[in-house]
Every structure is written in structure tokens, then in C-alpha cells.
């Protein structure tokens, strides 16, 4: 690790202003990606702005038909939250599948969503639920938020403050973990709202996306069997040591079917 300046602000405004004043800063949330990268000397920020002291970024709250999660909410807090379990049990389940205990006690939803790792779990929920990403400047719709591999709509210095997730009637998340890293090779969230079914996919493409062909099939018939003939083109899908694009496309179908089955059983 290279030396850096450490800051621990207590408000969003202070954090942003520290960030904007620094030469090559980085926000530190759970640090589950940033710290290992720094330890390997692949990242060398001049300044770390540690967000753990910003109270406004914490908390889990139900507001009418929305679940509001402070960006600094750790995965373990989501996994064991009564409020989440009542509102969107599939989200608590998803959080409990991330990494391992150590990771879940450090990693945060804001950090995960800001990083937009193609194999992270939360992005599947953000797109499937049609969440809104609230930053220090504006509210970004999930449809516009994820842009590419590790690329989001966030501007330099812009910081996620909270994430607002519409509460579906029912939802379910299925994950096919990478056997080595336990990241998602493919993860699929299926969410049923009064006005339709939304399917979010992580792991398969450069960033999380909504699977419109699956949604159309499920809109007509919300059963696993409805997905049997649906073609999932693998163009642009990720391919690595663990799974080819073709296999990932196949797994999207399998995980979607299983998620639908879970949803119906919930």
C-alpha cells in the first residue's frame, strides 16, 4: 500500500468537499474492493475519505411502498434486518449470499452499487426492483444508473447517499456462485409488482441489466415453465475461466426459472 491522507468526515457535505479538494481521492465505504486493490498497489489514491462516520448514510427504513437503505448499510445489516425481511425478504436473502461473514460485516450496499462490479449481487436487485439511486446531487433511476463494466452514471466526486427500493408483491433471487470467489457467475432477481414482472440479471453481462425477453414471457405466464423456450442471446456476455458466454446465457435461464419457482413458493 502506498501512503495516503486519511479523512473521516461526519456529514455528506464535508465528505464531498474533502473529496473535491484532494488531488486523487477515493471514497472509502466498506473497502472490500478498494483496500485489496490498494494493498496490491494497483490503486494509489492520495486521499481516502472514510464514510463510516456519516450518520446520514446509515439506516434501514420503510417509507410506505419503498425500502430506503442508507448507502453505508452493511450487507450483514440487510441480511438480518427485520424491516428488510418484512418488506423484501429476497433482498435479505441476497445480502446473506454475498461473500463470506467477514465481507458481509464490512461491505456496504452503496459501495457495491457505486463499484458496479459485473459479478456483484446487489445490482441485480437494484435493476429488478427499479430502485432509485440517491446521490448528494440528484436521484438516478436504476435504468440509467449502470452503464458498463465498473461504469455508472456517477460523476466524479458524486456520492451515493441512499438507495430507495420499491417494494414488490413478491420477489426471489437465485445465484450461481463462482466456486472460487463466490461472486455471481450469474444472479437473477425476479420481482412481481402490481403492474408487471421485472427481471434483473447480474454476472452475465458487463453490468446488471433487465432481461426484457424473460419479463415478457413471465408477464404472460408467471411460471417457470413459461421460460422454457425463451432464447437468451449471449452476445456481449462475459466469458472467463469459469464460464463461457454460452454457459452464462444458459445459467440465466436456469436461475430465472428457479427464482420464479421460489417466488411462487414464497
Amino acid at each position: 500500500m502506498y501512503p495516503f491522507n486519511y479523512h473521516k468526515p461526519s456529514s455528506v457535505d464535508e465528505a464531498v468537499s474533502l473529496f473535491l479538494d484532494a488531488e486523487d481521492p477515493a471514497y472509502l465505504s466498506g473497502g472490500m474492493t478498494l483496500i485489496p486493490t490498494m494493498k496490491q498497489r494497483l490503486a494509489m489514491p492520495t486521499d481516502l475519505v472514510d464514510l463510516s462516520g456519516v450518520q446520514a448514510m446509515r439506516g434501514i427504513e420503510r417509507q410506505d411502498q419503498k425500502l430506503v437503505l442508507g448507502a453505508f448499510t452493511r450487507h450483514a445489516e440487510v441480511a438480518r434486518s427485520e424491516v428488510v425481511a418484512q418488506a423484501i425478504p429476497a433482498l435479505a436473502h441476497l445480502a446473506g449470499l454475498i461473500g463470506d461473514n467477514q465481507v458481509r460485516y464490512r461491505g456496504t450496499i452503496g459501495g457495491s452499487v457505486a463499484n458496479s462490479d459485473p459479478a456483484a449481487d446487489y445490482p441485480a436487485a437494484v435493476v429488478a426492483l427499479g430502485a432509485e439511486v440517491v446521490t448528494n446531487k440528484r436521484t438516478i433511476s436504476s435504468a440509467d444508473y449502470f452503464q458498463d463494466l465498473f461504469e455508472t452514471a456517477l460523476e466524479p466526486g458524486e456520492m451515493i447517499v441512499r438507495i430507495e427500493l420499491p417494494i414488490p408483491r413478491r420477489a426471489a433471487y437465485r445465484k450461481f456462485p463462482n466456486p472460487a470467489s463466490r461472486y455471481a457467475v450469474v444472479g437473477v432477481m425476479v420481482a412481481q409488482f402490481d403492474n408487471g414482472v421485472q427481471v434483473g440479471v447480474t454476472g452475465a453481462g458487463p453490468c446488471a441489466f433487465r432481461a426484457s425477453t424473460l419479463e415478457a414471457a413471465l408477464a404472460a405466464d408467471l411460471r417457470p415453465e413459461a421460460l422454457a423456450g425463451v432464447d437468451i442471446p449471449d452476445a456481449g456476455f462475459n466469458a472467463d475461466l469459469h464460464a463461457s458466454a454460452e454457459y452464462r446465457a444458459h445459467l440465466v435461464g436456469v436461475m430465472a426459472r428457479r427464482a420464479v419457482a421460489d417466488l411462487l413458493a414464497s
Binding site: 463462482n178 466456486p179 472460487a180 470467489s181 461472486y183 475461466l241 469459469h242
Partner: peptide, 22 residues
């Protein structure tokens, strides 16, 4: 699970626990 793999240039593809599956 386990497979130590190199690419055609001799770079180790499974050089961490992200890819080498214990």
C-alpha cells in the same frame, strides 16, 4: 475444483483465490 492454468504466453491465469478454487 482446482486447476493451475497458464495462458499461451505463460501468464498464470489462476494466480489468486478469485480464480484458483480451493
Amino acid at each position: 475444483l482446482e486447476h493451475g492454468r497458464y495462458d499461451d504466453y505463460g501468464q498464470l491465469l489462476t494466480g489468486s483465490y478469485m480464480d484458483y478454487c480451493m
